[in-house]
Design a protein around this nucleic acid. Structure first.
Lengths: 199, 199
DNA sequence: TGAGCCATACCAAAAGGTCGGTATGTTTTT
DNA sequence: AAAAACATACCGACCTTTTGGTATGGCTCA
């Protein structure tokens, strides 16, 4: 099969990837378009050919790249969990490896920065949050059916709580990124997870 | 004592207040200096007379105004609490009234946006977080002494958890500011607080 | 040859910040 | 006590750089 010299889909992906790096490091307002296209080794012509404006670029990155990253980090693993111990292991890992610029932190940071003022970005971000929450509440329902999660636990409420909790970890860790804080979070988290257990 | 006709402290306060409104609405990078001085009905001359640069303005606002607001919202009330029921009532109130642009949300939003990239702002924000955590852990120690909090609870760890939790509430609420989400948070929060109780 | 793809050049506006000037105290000197 | 010297507080014009965004034109491929 003959191949085009340049595949527009690759160009688009390159811009999205570069934009992701900038957004993760400097937030939405703090990211300029020139640093983005320079990082992608392209020009603004390419950028504005694929995206209507800066906001559309950010929205596309959120719903495509960021959502995919959250899928790998959270949704996929959560779907394969079938015991409270494995849930605790996953949470411990995710908690200890939270770092500025990773998918979870960026999701939270972008939400905190833009969601109140920009409905378009808020909608894109919200759908990522919703996918996350849905994975949690699904897991809780499976756990209740299999009797390794207490029957009094309400899936939707608990999912809301769980996502808020990790979002908070992402923020406070960003502010004081020492190992002790992360370990504190992990410890308190395990104590919380125990409250879900059948007793 | 004779009084000066113009009180420079008022001008400074006016700039800080205006800056606070802008930072709360648009974040740090999203806030321009011209909107700030226009809101204060002053000029850039006044701004740069009182503050070295934009970053110093933000740092001053965080350590003076934002810290004071958190004192009123959280630290003060927490110091006057002497039962788990009153703690639960305070938390429920703060949880239900979280809104974009209030002190807690702004603290979290600024931390998420700037803390990873700006050490000066990170330090100012961190000291506000620390005051918050200190108030919580102090309360827990008092509760343990008075036996209305279980003796197995570790104050520092639990304080870290608590602050992260509310920070997360502030973010996720900003993204989907419907009443149901807030109530979910409040419900799950009360269940969590029960785990602190002496049993 | 025409349509998609992307680079170059350019633009108006807004960004953060500088600078000289001035009006108003506050000290110091005579 | 008056005058001179200094300090503080603020204004407003201006500067440079960067911002997000556009207009145009060339290249490639079907």
């Amino acid at each position: 099969m003959k191949q085009r010299k340049k595949q527009p889909v690759l160009t688009r992906k390159a811009i999205l990837a570069a934009a992701g790096v900038e957004f993760s490091r400097h937030g939405y307002s703090g990211s300029g378009l020139i640093p983005i296209v320079e990082r992608a080794e392209l020009t603004k012509g390419a950028l504005f050919h694929h995206f209507q404006d800066k906001r559309a670029l950010a929205a596309a990155w959120i719903s495509e790249e960021l959502a995919a990253a959250m899928q790998i980090l959270w949704i996929g693993p959560l779907e394969n969990i079938s015991s409270l111990d494995s849930l605790r292991a996953l949470c411990r890992t995710r908690c200890l490896e939270v770092r500025p610029g990773d998918a979870t932190s960026t999701l939270v940071a972008l939400a905190a920065e833009t969601a109140a003022a920009d409905a378009v970005l808020a909608a894109a971000l919200e759908s990522v949050f919703t996918a996350w929450r849905t994975a949690i509440s699904g897991l809780i329902e499976r756990g209740k059916s299999a009797s390794w999660i207490h029957r009094s636990i309400q899936p939707a409420t608990e999912a809301e709580f769980f996502v808020s909790l990790f979002s908070g970890f992402a923020v406070t860790t960003q502010c004081s990124p020492d190992e002790a804080a992360r370990r504190n979070c992990a410890t308190a988290l395990e104590a919380y997870l125990e409250t879900l257990r059948t007793h």
